[in-house]
Design a protein around this nucleic acid. Structure first.
Lengths: 200, 200
DNA sequence: GTAAAAAAACCGTCTGGACGGTATGTCTTG
DNA sequence: CAAGACATACCGTCCAGACGGTTTTTTTAC
């Protein structure tokens, strides 16, 4: 029992748990099947409690989306910071973050799956694009080459494939592609070495 | 009023129109927002009329899915047939079909959007994978290289980006990437020249 | 420090509407 | 007149959100 003797009310933890449970449900049953009841039940609260923290279902999903984007953004920054090679810096980091996602780790898989789920909605799609465009603006001096574009597209494809469990997913396929892109970049001052490093 | 004086009954046309309207709605509002009522109304029939042709909502979506896959399959075949270069034949065709999609043509855009929409559902995702795997099996002697994989992934990324209207979409971006991949392939017996050809 | 007051956190129930699907017609076509 | 093509009416379910209450926490007042 968690509710033993001391009631440390901790609303923020609940908020986080609600987000977490929602993410979990989406990965398992898809976004259309998400209901407030299920989220509330899984989180161990009433629906009223849920609606206290998130005024509407949309607000819940938006919260989830914001969390994912923030996470992704952070990962990208973490990879860009120590990168001494300017060429396509952002796009390489973009690819690296996606390629480094471990689909067997529930938490990471969760975060990854989400963006696809949300991307099927034009509204969130636009928000994601806004983020990418903002970052591209920041890196406009380094990430406007066709190579940079291609890297990003390959990353998206990798992502999509990985999520769907397609024939080009899995560790083996991924490292094949990564290796190919790497070899390709060695001739054009591209290095994806940092891509394989995990945490700092 | 369309229902003026002459009722040319033509059930097949209606069936096609229903599929068309459903596709249209999905592209605009996303699959989760699709309802039988909307489809019926947009097609100018009653819900009962719709359900006469498609026994359930699932049947409607399945019908749509089958149509898209058949279309895609046909396009790929049309590109493979005259291709004298064996290397990564299927994967190049895969990329070419996607790259050749004109997003300004409502019909093509519709077909393209669908697969993403459907891919957000694990069930359809599996069906799509099954198709790809079947084709890969047929082309296992030509499309197992890392390059082939990369081509397919880039295609998926292109597709995804184009659908969402992201920063890497549009004719300019597309031709940049196409050109890059082409130049890259020129050293490895890869030619995407056929990719730019439209209809025969 | 402590009691009162206010606010926030959370619960359980209810409802109005949407939506998938059915049942039963009516009309057209062959 | 039989069968398919469609319309109309209706049912059961599910679900988002509203509402009113109860408990916990924080603030205020003394």
């Amino acid at each position: 029992m968690l509710t033993s003797h001391q009631r440390k009310n901790d609303p923020e933890a609940l908020r986080a748990r609600l987000l977490d449970c929602a993410a979990s449900l989406i990965t398992e049953e898809g976004l259309p099947a998400l209901t407030l009841d299920k989220v509330a039940r899984l989180a161990g609260v009433s629906k009223g409690g849920l609606l206290h923290h998130f005024a509407s279902k949309q607000a819940l999903i938006d919260g989830l989306f914001a969390q994912v984007v923030a996470w992704f953004n952070g990962r990208v920054d973490a990879l860009i910071a120590p990168d001494r090679n300017a060429s396509a810096r952002f796009s390489r980091a973009y690819l690296a973050v996606i390629a480094a996602i471990d689909m067997d780790e529930p938490e990471q898989r969760r975060l990854a799956v989400l963006i696809l789920m949300l991307s099927s909605d034009p509204h969130h799609c636009a928000r994601w694009n806004a983020w990418v465009e903002a970052r591209l603006e920041r890196h406009r001096s380094t990430d406007r080459s066709p190579l940079a574009r291609t890297l990003r597209l390959a990353a998206d494809g990798l992502w999509l494939s990985e999520l769907g469990g397609g024939p080009d997913s899995g560790l083996e396929a991924r490292s094949q592609v990564l290796g190919f892109l790497e070899s390709l970049g060695s001739g054009t001052a591209l290095s994806l070495a940092t891509a394989k490093a995990g945490e700092p």
